[in-house]
Amino acid sequence: MSTATVQAEAPASAAGPAPITEPGVYDMSNETYHAHRYALSSSGARKLLPPSCPAIFRYEQDHPQPPKKVFDIGNAAHKLVLGQGPKLVKIDAEEWRTNAVKADVKAVRDAGNIPLKPSEHETVHAMADALRRHPVASLLFDPERGTPERSLFWRDDKTGVMRRARLDWLPNPRSGRLIIPDYKTCRSANPEKLAKDIDEYGYHQQDDWYRSACRSLGIADDDAAFVFVCQEKTAPYVITVVEVNATSRRIGAARNRRALETFAQCTASGYWPGYSDDIEHLSLPPWAEIRDTQEYL
Score class of each variant (00 low, 15 high):
Gln65Ile: 07
Gln84Arg: 15
Pro86Asp: 09
Phe71Leu: 12
Pro171Lys: 06
Pro173Ser: 02
Leu88Gln: 11
Pro115Ala: 09
Lys158Glu: 15
Glu144Cys: 01
Pro118Val: 07
Lys102Ile: 01
Ile73His: 04
Val108Arg: 05
Glu149Gln: 11
Lys106Met: 10
Asp92Ile: 03
Arg164Ile: 07
Met127Glu: 03
Trp169Leu: 06
Gly112Leu: 13
Glu122Phe: 07
Phe153Lys: 01
Ile73Ser: 04
Gly146Asn: 05
Asp157Val: 04
Ser138Val: 06
His134Lys: 03
Gly74Ala: 08
Val81Ala: 09
Asp104Ile: 03
Pro67Asn: 08
Pro64Lys: 09
Ala77Ser: 15
Trp154Pro: 01
Gly146Met: 03
Arg58Trp: 09
Gly146Ile: 02
Asp129Gln: 14
Thr123Val: 11
Trp96Tyr: 07
Glu122Cys: 06
Lys90Arg: 15
Pro67Lys: 05
Asn99Tyr: 04
Ala111Asn: 11
Pro148Phe: 05
Ser119Tyr: 08
Ala76Tyr: 09
Asn99Val: 02
Pro173Gly: 02
Glu144Gln: 10
Ala128Met: 06
Arg174Asp: 02
Lys106Glu: 11
Val161Asn: 00
Trp154Lys: 03
Arg166Val: 09
Asp72Gly: 00
Val105Glu: 04
Ala103Thr: 13
Asn75Ser: 12
Asp62Gln: 15
Asn75Met: 14
Phe141Ile: 04
Gln61Trp: 08
Ser119Asp: 13
Leu170Trp: 05
Lys106Pro: 02
Glu94Pro: 04
Arg174Asn: 04
Gly176Asn: 10
Asn172Ala: 11
Arg133Leu: 14
Tyr59Asn: 10
Gly176Leu: 11
Lys90Pro: 00
Ile91Pro: 07
Arg155Tyr: 00
Val101Glu: 05
Lys90Ser: 07
Glu95Cys: 01
Ala77Thr: 14
Asp168Ala: 06
Arg58Met: 10
Arg174Trp: 00
Arg58Phe: 08
Ala93Gln: 12
Leu152Cys: 14
Leu88Phe: 10
Pro66Ala: 08
Leu88Lys: 09
Ala77Cys: 12
Asp168Gln: 06
Ser138Asn: 09
Val70Asp: 10
Gly176Phe: 13
Leu82Glu: 04
Ser119Asn: 11
Asp62Met: 15
Lys87Val: 13
Thr98Glu: 11
Ala165Ser: 15
Thr123Glu: 01
Asn75Glu: 14
Pro64Val: 07
Pro86Gln: 10
Val124His: 03
Pro171Glu: 01
Ala76Cys: 08
Gly74Phe: 07
Trp169Ile: 05
Pro86Thr: 11
Ala76Lys: 10
Ala76Met: 08
Gly146Gln: 04
Glu60Leu: 14
Lys102Glu: 05
Glu94Gln: 13
Leu178Gln: 08
Ser151Pro: 01
His121Phe: 15
Ile91Ser: 12
Leu116Thr: 13
Lys106Gly: 11
Lys117His: 06
Ala128Gln: 06
Asp157Asn: 00
Asn113Arg: 08
Asn113Glu: 15
Gln61Thr: 14
Phe141Val: 02
Lys158Arg: 12
Pro86Ala: 14
Gly160Pro: 04
Arg166Glu: 12
Pro64Trp: 08
Lys117Met: 11
Asp62Tyr: 07
Asn113Gly: 01
Gln61Ile: 14
Tyr59Thr: 12
Asp168Ser: 03
Ser151Trp: 02
Phe141Cys: 04
Glu122Ser: 14
Thr123Phe: 00
Pro67Ile: 12
Val70Thr: 13
Ile73Val: 15
Asp104Gln: 15
Thr147Ala: 03
Glu60Gly: 01
